[in-house]
Amino acid sequence: MAVEILIETEGWRDVDVTALAFRAVGATLRHRRVDPACDVSVLACDDARIAALNSDFRDRPRPTNVLSWPSEERGACRDGAAPAAPRDPELGDIAIALGTCAAEAAAAGIPLADHATHLLVHATLHLLGYDHVRDGDAALMETLETEILADLGLPDPYSR
């Protein structure tokens, strides 16, 4: 597994975002039994950068916690079904914003590293074709996130 990390915001070094990304992406790929010879790129940025990306790609000119761009469409046709396995070893790109993540973690009373790990698992599932637009897909994705985080020794983020 290759995870390429670009740290644009130095504060991400304080939580060792590189180690978090390798851990979260690796756990997600293992859980979903995806060939570990996959590539993922992670941009660890600030709120201004992610707001610009959110504006450019989603027409939402405001910060968000995490964004993902799969290299190919992998979504399931049927609500609640698992998507097809990736054909392309390049899974895609993730951007994660420090300010928003830190504010969310503080509001929830959880460590930033735990919240960032959750968001990186969430984004990796998006790269694998999982989504939360339809109810069945959302339920499946939430269950997978909870299982993967449990594998990492982290609590269920949806039970707070």
Rank of each mutant, 00 (worst) to 15 (best):
1 M>Y: 13
1 M>D: 04
3 V>I: 12
5 I>M: 06
5 I>W: 02
6 L>R: 15
6 L>T: 14
8 E>M: 09
11 G>L: 10
12 W>A: 00
12 W>H: 08
14 D>C: 07
16 D>C: 05
17 V>P: 00
20 L>H: 01
21 A>F: 00
21 A>H: 01
23 R>M: 07
24 A>W: 06
26 G>M: 09
29 L>F: 13
29 L>M: 10
32 R>K: 15
33 R>T: 00
34 V>R: 10
35 D>G: 14
35 D>T: 12
36 P>G: 04
37 A>K: 09
39 D>R: 13
39 D>I: 15
40 V>T: 02
40 V>W: 02
41 S>G: 06
43 L>T: 09
44 A>C: 02
45 C>Y: 05
46 D>G: 15
52 A>L: 10
55 S>M: 06
56 D>K: 11
57 F>I: 11
57 F>N: 11
58 R>A: 14
59 D>M: 13
59 D>P: 00
60 R>A: 14
60 R>H: 10
61 P>I: 10
61 P>V: 08
61 P>G: 06
61 P>D: 13
62 R>L: 14
62 R>P: 00
63 P>Q: 09
63 P>K: 02
64 T>F: 14
64 T>S: 06
66 V>A: 12
67 L>T: 04
68 S>Y: 12
69 W>V: 11
73 E>W: 15
73 E>T: 09
76 A>Q: 03
77 C>E: 13
77 C>I: 11
79 D>P: 02
80 G>H: 00
83 P>A: 05
84 A>G: 00
85 A>M: 06
85 A>L: 08
86 P>L: 06
86 P>G: 08
87 R>M: 08
89 P>N: 03
90 E>G: 06
90 E>C: 10
92 G>W: 04
92 G>L: 01
95 A>C: 07
96 I>A: 01
97 A>E: 05
97 A>R: 08
98 L>N: 05
100 T>Y: 11
100 T>Q: 11
101 C>V: 04
103 A>E: 15
104 E>S: 14
105 A>F: 02
107 A>F: 06
109 G>Y: 04
111 P>Y: 06
112 L>K: 01
114 D>S: 10
115 H>V: 12
117 T>K: 01
118 H>I: 04
118 H>E: 12
119 L>Q: 07
121 V>C: 03
122 H>Y: 03
123 A>N: 01
124 T>W: 03
124 T>G: 03
124 T>C: 05
126 H>V: 05
129 G>W: 03
130 Y>C: 06
135 D>A: 14
135 D>F: 14
136 G>Q: 04
136 G>Y: 09
136 G>W: 10
137 D>M: 01
140 L>M: 09
141 M>E: 15
142 E>R: 15
147 E>A: 15
147 E>T: 08
147 E>C: 09
148 I>K: 07
151 D>M: 09
153 G>Q: 11
155 P>W: 11
155 P>S: 13
156 D>I: 05
